[in-house]
């Protein structure tokens, strides 16, 4: 199989993100629309229903380095959240989130956001006490 280089891969992801993915509960885009290296991204997750996260909107920062997608991006929450894989400064611990710990080239910004949202709704996390809505790191 042809190995899609970083920049063309990120262009594909950008185009997909611009069109909107799934039911709109996760979205992402470039932080700066003329970032020619496409390194800095914003992500948004709408908290899953029937959990403590319901109706909350979480903002995240995503950084895709030079070796993306061979290496995973780094992810940090801007909105405060209490989850076992999020450190006190908002950074997502790559060892504690399986999509990052078991990173593959087939994973993407989208699959990360979708997995984080799924984790919010998991049995262990859905009732964790949360910081005040709207607070940021």
């Amino acid at each position: 199989m042809a190995r899609v280089p970083r920049n063309f891969r990120l262009l594909e992801e950008l185009e997909k993100g611009e069109k909107g993915i799934g039911d709109g509960s996760c979205s992402y885009g470039l932080e700066d629309s003329d970032d020619i290296l496409m390194s800095h991204w914003n992500g948004t997750i709408i908290g899953p229903g029937h959990t403590v996260h319901e109706n909350r909107i979480y903002s995240l920062k995503i950084y895709c380095g030079d070796s993306y997608p061979d290496r995973p991006p780094t992810i940090a929450f801007l909105s405060r959240v209490n989850l076992p894989f999020v450190q006190v400064d908002g950074k997502v611990d790559p060892n504690k989130l399986s999509v990052l710990a078991n990173w593959s080239r087939n994973s993407s910004i989208e699959t990360i956001l979708v997995e984080i949202r799924r984790e919010m709704a998991s049995f262990n996390n859905r009732k964790l006490p949360q910081p005040p809505e709207g607070s940021v790191y």
Partner: peptide
């Protein structure tokens, strides 16, 4: 510029 030939090329 950069150019990439996809699998289907």
């Amino acid at each position: 510029l950069e150019l990439f030939l996809p699998e289907e090329y």
